[in-house]
């Protein structure tokens, strides 16, 4: 499953309302819950926080990639959030996080999970990619960007 196949306006929030790491995780999980892709939000939150506590999932250059395996999803799911003001998520470079990619996978889909994480990792290394997402005014613009050939 490619990123393109997981993305639609229902799983994208621009701008995010949260101001803290825990709140932004909850906000992204809630987006997926409203889209019908997540069952028990508290269980998912625990899984995401548990992973983040071992090493921050806020990377460098404003990117955060919280992820977890959970029984609460039936397939690989992705939520994208943009925070123009930025959120302190204990990133590896000490900067605020602006672009959030929450990726959840069922326990039996490690292969697709790895592929999706790799795809996001590669894409977010591009300055142009980050710039376009950060300048998006709404979810539709992000979907349009992903669907461009």
């Amino acid at each position: 499953m490619t990123l393109l196949e997981m993305i639609n306006e229902d799983v994208i929030k621009v701008p995010l309302e949260s101001n803290t790491k825990h709140d932004v995780f909850r906000e992204l999980i809630e987006i997926l819950h409203k889209a019908g892709k997540v069952k028990n939000t508290e269980s998912v939150f625990d899984a995401v926080i548990n992973r983040d506590n071992q090493m921050s999932t806020a990377l460098e250059n404003g990117i955060a990639l919280p992820h977890a395996k959970t029984e609460e999803v039936n397939q690989l799911v992705l939520a994208i959030g943009v925070s123009p003001k930025g959120i302190d998520c204990d990133s590896h470079d000490g900067n605020l996080s602006h672009l959030f990619f929450l990726l959840l996978a069922p326990p039996d889909q490690s292969g697709p999970h790895i592929e999706a994480l790799s795809e996001i990792s590669r894409a977010t290394k591009s300055n142009a990619f980050r710039r376009v997402l950060l300048s998006a005014q709404n979810a539709a613009e992000i979907v349009e960007f992903f669907c461009e050939d």
Binding site: R51, Q54, M55, T57, L59, L65, H67, H92, P107, D108, S110, G111, H113, I114, E115, L117, S118, S121
Partner: peptide, 27 residues
């Protein structure tokens, strides 16, 4: 088994070592 991708995720600090081992076992 795409160990190359797994190694890249560790290098990028997206995966921690225990995840690398767990996912490799899954694969």
């Amino acid at each position: 088994i795409n160990t190359h991708a797994l190694n890249d995720l560790v290098k990028s600090r997206i995966f921690i070592e225990s995840e690398q081992i767990e996912y490799k076992n899954d694969l």
